[in-house]
């Protein structure tokens, strides 16, 4: 089957029920999306499917065919994702960094849908993304800071 990932076409030959996560990591060499719980409980594997944040570890690859998939590696074509990544760096958010691709994908989806989220909206949108290092206070600060930089300048790519 064909997949569109970060605006690139991938021809994949795997069983239809293979989780998208493993297709990204093992077939497409996109290892930025992380495996952690395997049951959709922690958010480390979050990617965007047609702009929606999805848990790739419990999404069969067949459900993502004929869709537009964006991963943490897709910032070149996604100015908002790039902005969120840059803000993460400015706010010194990361510790071990393992959950951060998922956190960033969840935050980007939130900001796309709600460019000025308050703390409650952030809590709700980020509740499914666990961080064992406890970087939450800085994640919150980074989301507010990224929101303050919106809207993106016209023509940003």
């Amino acid at each position: 089957m064909d997949l569109e990932i970060n605006r690139q076409r991938f021809a994949i030959d795997v069983p239809a029920d293979t989780p998208l996560l493993w297709v990204l990591r093992e077939e497409c060499a996109l290892s930025g999306t992380k495996f952690s719980c395997g049951k959709g409980l922690c958010g480390a594997c979050t990617v965007h499917i047609n702009g929606q944040p999805m848990r790739s570890c419990v999404t069969p690859v067949s459900a993502a065919a004929r869709s537009s998939i964006t991963t943490i590696e897709g910032a070149a074509n996604d100015p908002l994702l790039r902005l969120v990544q840059e803000t993460w760096i400015e706010e010194d958010v990361v510790q071990c960094g393992y959950c951060q691709p998922g956190q960033i994908m969840a935050a980007t989806a939130l900001l796309r849908q709600n460019p000025k989220p308050d703390d409650n909206a952030i809590d709700a949108a980020m509740a499914g993304n666990l961080c064992r290092c406890g970087t939450y206070p800085r994640i919150r600060a980074a989301i507010h800071k990224a929101a303050a930089k919106l809207p993106l300048p016209k023509g940003a790519r």
């Binding site: 930025g32 958010v93 990361v94 691709p101």
Partner: peptide, 17 residues
């Protein structure tokens, strides 16, 4: 600023996995 951030926020840091 932490020097490992750019790698980690772009999904380029190489973990064991």
């Amino acid at each position: 600023l932490r020097p490992d951030s750019p790698l980690k926020v772009r999904g380029q840091a190489v973990f064991g996995l």
